[in-house]
Nucleic acid binder design. Structure first.
Lengths: 252, 252
DNA sequence: TGTGATTATCGTCAGAGAGACGACTAAGAT
DNA sequence: ATCTTAGTCGTCTCTCTGACGATAATCACA
């Protein structure tokens, strides 16, 4: 707060953009919406919108998330705004992007939020998005990158940052459970790690690790056969949020 | 970007706030400035100021940093904006704070940046700050917390988030070297860890760990006696930015 | 010129944890 | 019945860490 007349502050537009990730069909996918208006009309983009003058940032992110997906999300009070929905989806602030020319219309600062959600029924086009889809991250960034998919604004960068955050955060936190339904098996959790990291993990070592970490998993009683093979024990997410020692992401 | 007329977007003020940390006298300290004007006149606060309409966020943070401390900082292009100054100071985006009532005057969204700097000569009052000082973090948050020191706005929360980020980031990155001069000894680096974490580390295990991690430290040739005792080898920061396996912060 | 204090550096040992992988279990498919 | 698929338990080895002994090289001071 300095040598400025506060009544003459430079006016900015503030938006939130959402990096919504889920695991579908053994693949990490991001929610994209098709823009219905200029600029970047017809391009795929991250869902998002303007922050209203009377709402907080996480609140705006929750609202946009609900509008685009129907997911409920609420942020907890506390340091960096982080929250869990009743449905298990997780919302946290990612980073803020404010390059002076990132929006050709005006000066826009966008606060990006990261959402990790269990597999959702199917994207619902909401607001002004003429359509929405789950885009496999591999198509956007992997070797088999499809260069036809260019995102609007700087959303490619935002998405890349979100994916990297998710990949590193499941190492040292129990966040991977946010990709799972309320009850899940060790194998399902392992497939989440495999999809997010794009690797194959040893089922025996993985099982030893996650069941041996206190507070990570809570047995919920039942067993299930969802993948064929021997029935597996069902678990709920335990109270632990931080894993110490962490899950190790394979090197190469 | 949605059902709003873009020419009628809700106007926000956007500021940057700086969490500038250094290690002085075996203690983690944060740079505070005394506010010269309302609101919170006379309160200590984080340095910061309005973002100009034609500058980026990291750019504004660098500018404010230079105005308050004379430190040069520049951000590198790349994902989350992160940079290293020639002088060794490190600048990275921390988080963004936008509660509707965080500033009583108007709707302000503040992008906080974290700066890690080597011990600086002495704070220089700049801009509208009537004075500036290095406040030991222990006085603000530790057991011996001095409740007389209440920071303006939500700066207490921002500072706490910045300190926690620094504490966790030196675990798995080589960032602790940002607190050191260009050349330093293993003992000096250890004292940085001890000050930031508020613990005592075993000199022998610490030495083995840091010298055994490839790319962390580069021998620079010379030796020095800065603390009395046997002369120590001098090192520069190596190229490695991520430590794998990480430095482990003692439990209790 | 010792002698002690201080800091740096090297070594040793035991225990925890991870990767590799063998073996067994319990379901469905043919 | 047998094969296939997935889940679960155990074992072995290697790496890394924490605890701690020992030695090295400087300064302060008697």
């Amino acid at each position: 707060m300095s040598r400025y007349d506060p009544s003459a502050f430079p006016p900015f537009a503030v938006t939130v953009d959402l990096v919504v990730l889920t695991v579908r069909d053994h693949e990490l996918c991001a929610l994209l919406v098709k823009r219905g208006e200029a600029p970047f009309q017809g391009y795929w983009a991250l869902p998002g919108g303007f922050v209203r003058l009377d709402e907080g940032l996480a609140e705006a992110a929750s609202r946009e998330l609900a509008e685009e997906t129907g997911l409920r999300a609420q942020s907890l009070p506390g340091s960096l705004p982080v929250g869990q929905t009743p449905a298990g989806a997780h919302l946290e602030q990612l980073a803020t992007y404010g390059h002076p020319q990132r929006d050709p219309r005006m000066r826009v600062v966008s606060v990006a939020y990261l959402v990790l959600a269990p597999d959702l029924p199917s994207p619902r086009a909401g607001g002004d998005a003429s359509s929405a889809r789950w885009a496999p991250v591999r198509e956007l960034f992997g070797e088999e990158r499809n260069d036809g998919v260019l995102l609007a604004f700087d959303h490619e960068q935002i998405l890349a940052d979100g994916v990297e955050r998710a990949r590193s955060k499941i190492e040292y936190s129990s966040l991977a459970t946010a990709f799972c339904p309320p009850e899940f098996t060790v194998g399902e959790l392992r497939r989440v790690y495999e999809a997010v990291w794009g690797v194959v993990l040893d089922p025996r070592n993985f099982h030893r690790k996650v069941t041996g970490t206190p507070g990570f998993l809570l047995p919920s009683g039942g067993t299930t056969t969802r993948q064929g093979g021997r029935p597996a024990q069902l678990f709920k997410a335990g109270g632990a949020t931080v894993l110490n020692p962490p899950m190790l992401r394979p090197e190469a």
